[in-house]
Amino acid sequence: MLVYLLRRLVVAFCVCLAVSVLSFALIFLAGDPAIAIAGSGGSARDAEAVRIAYGFDRPFAVQYLDWIGHVLTGDLGRSIYFNMPVTEIIGSRLPVTLVLGGLAFLAALAVALPLGILAALKPEGALDRAALLLAVTGQAVPSFWLGLMAIVVFGVWTGWVPISGLASWQGYILPVAVLAFSAMPAMMRITRSGMIEVLGSDYVRTARAKGLPAGQVILSHALRNAVLPLVSLAAVQLGVLLSGSIVIESVFAINGLGRLAWESLLRADLPVVQAIILILSAVYVLLTTAGDLLNAWLDPRIRGAG
């Protein structure tokens, strides 16, 4: 287990390093970041001033090492637009996105797990077909459009929920539901296929043959093995939810990390964009590593083979 743990941690560290280089290099796509920051109305002298102030005149490697050195000490740079430390701005926006993503994740899990199990009990049955239809729809509907339509129906026509913002708890209902609907299908499908496979195995047949109640066989014998693939996927989906909330936050006018990233892009506030990409990637690496370790703890076979 210790060897497996160390291997996973080394890989996670290397991926974080690669991601940091990429998120730093991204701003050079603009050709010259100094001109991008100075804006379309900026003169050549403005761009030159920006270039010197932000050190864009130095070699790329020097700039990167300077940046990553500060990042490692918890300093993500200064926002050009707010003229405040990026850490402070992100600190005030991150909790909103975490709550939104976390709630959506729980909601998706609460629907996907029971639905996947029930669908697996009678493959090709009516419930299975309905679940499949729901999953296919969930994967085809663009979440921003679903959000807008939900606003029209539940906010404007019926007036059940506020149409934007998170001032009251009702404000969470639509964004969480829409986000959950996009994450649910994959989780439901993997639960279903895992359950179908496990329910057909010999040990489940034995457990049934010796007269154990069906509920106990399904929940304690079968589910434990069927959720293994779900654990890995769940980690991925949580990461996807956090970065996917960028669209939903814009639709529902929620001041989270995603909206901050989008607005920062529009006003060429590049240090903020870099920092958010870095943070979201690091969170994703953290989640998937945790998912793998959890799987290894649940299933001894992985530890040995890893």
Binding site: A18, L265, V285
Partner: peptide
């Protein structure tokens, strides 16, 4: 693995905006 760690919507947005 590195590619999967990148938040795809955000990176695509940033790349399109900058390029």
């Amino acid at each position: 693995t590195t590619r999967l760690s990148l938040p795809i919507v955000l990176v695509a947005l940033a790349a399109v905006a900058l390029a």
